[in-house]
Design a protein around this nucleic acid. Structure first.
Lengths: 228, 228
DNA sequence: AACATATAAATTGTCGACATATTAGGCTCC
DNA sequence: GGAGCCTAATATGTCGACAATTTATATGTT
């Protein structure tokens, strides 16, 4: 679930101050500790974290590249405000990118990776039967599943795009809108079909099912937001 | 073709020093003035451009976010070295993203935008008949065509992903490998079919044709690289 | 009282310098 | 002659301060 383990350097923890700051701020923004739309004051944040403004600015720069903050010259940076339209945009991109990732995963995942994915899915199935109320683990499980498939594509650029950029934005939406999905059972079934296509090494079908899965998830989110 | 006109701020030119530096360095890297794989010395570059190291570092940070340079903590930044595998990765991502963009363009482009695209394509057709040798304008035309379709998707996040990130990397590959395509005629035909699907407002078909078009372009690139 | 203007405060952009880590070079020892 | 260590030099990471721009405050005029 963390982003630094697969992508970043070999060292155990991020060495440089800016790296740690970036991780900290990213988590704070994603989890809503720093309110969406709020202005980021460089002097204040620097003081709070006990670092220089220079280091902070580099961290903010990275956050901007990941679309978590928006910056205007000579005016300052604000945490992004999430809109319904932007959420749709994200889902469209996810559909395209994860569809391709799944296609590639059907070709490139090792037999062992596929087996592990099957085990993971079985665990999810048990969790759903045992504690149907606990939506948190379902969400976590859903992320795990998608995460592994993306890794299985073996396309490093694609992995970075999804895991380092898009997924954080998506988690931010989840925190902000407090999404508790009532369709964990359906999602589980869809994961099952999808995995079958991967086991059969059928890229075309795998991509198709993933795209349907994400569209279905999107429709669910749309419905939930309109209910409010 | 430029990236700053649609995406960036409202001011005529980039105001801040770091912005200009970033634009300059990006162009220099994309066009190969700074050799791929070469180390970026902060003191030297800062001196050459007459700026402080701080400003330069912010610019390098953005270049890193766009995958044009790779940075290792306490060691330094190097211009990316382009490999055959990475090129394939880029094409796979393009196929997914531009496929989706075309699907959306078929739904969201205005009638006027479509007409303008038809005019543009006609001009390309004439250029091909008149000066079949001039590969440069063909490439430029190809980029224009793709660029406009992406814009037509009206998905701002997707537009940024393709125009601000991927296309620069792609142009870098073109410069480095000196790609002169001998299939401008075929590409033109494919553009024609594709545009027809957009005119017919057929998203499914439009996406399909774009994906085929990009796959075809990829195969051509693969062939060219193997010939060397 | 409201609007415009001018001044003051605060914030962002930029710079130069210090601290720390890496690399290069030379010396010793085997 | 080569491998390994120690020292010097260079590069990166981090900081505090100045410059330029924006925002807030105060003043004056209609």
């Amino acid at each position: 679930m963390q982003n630094q383990s697969p992508s970043n350097n070999t060292d155990p923890v991020s060495i440089t101050l800016t790296d740690r700051l970036f991780d900290t701020l990213q988590r704070a923004i994603v989890e809503g500790e720093i309110a969406p739309g709020s202005k980021i004051s460089e002097p204040e944040l620097a003081r709070q974290h006990g670092v220089s403004r220079g280091s902070l600015r580099e961290a903010i720069g990275r956050l901007e590249a990941r679309k978590l903050v928006e910056r205007k010259p000579n005016i300052g940076a604000r945490v992004v405000t999430l809109s319904y339209e932007q959420l749709i945009e994200i889902f469209q991109i996810r559909e395209a990118l994860e569809g391709m990732a799944t296609r590639l995963a059907a070709q490139n995942m090792s037999d062992q990776e596929i087996e592990e994915l099957q085990v993971l899915l079985e665990e999810h199935g048990q969790q759903i039967e045992e504690q149907q109320g606990q939506a948190y683990f379902q969400k976590q499980g859903d992320l795990d599943f998608h995460y592994r498939i993306v890794q299985g594509s073996k396309n490093h650029h694609l992995i970075g795009l999804l895991c380092d950029d898009l997924y954080h934005l998506l988690r931010m939406y989840r925190y902000q809108f407090g999404m508790r999905s009532k369709r964990s059972r359906q999602a589980y079934d869809e994961h099952h079909y999808l995995l079958n296509a991967i086991v059969a090494r059928d890229p075309e079908m795998a991509e198709l099912l993933m795209r349907q899965h994400i569209r279905s998830s999107r429709r669910n989110v749309e419905k939930m937001l309109l209910e409010k």
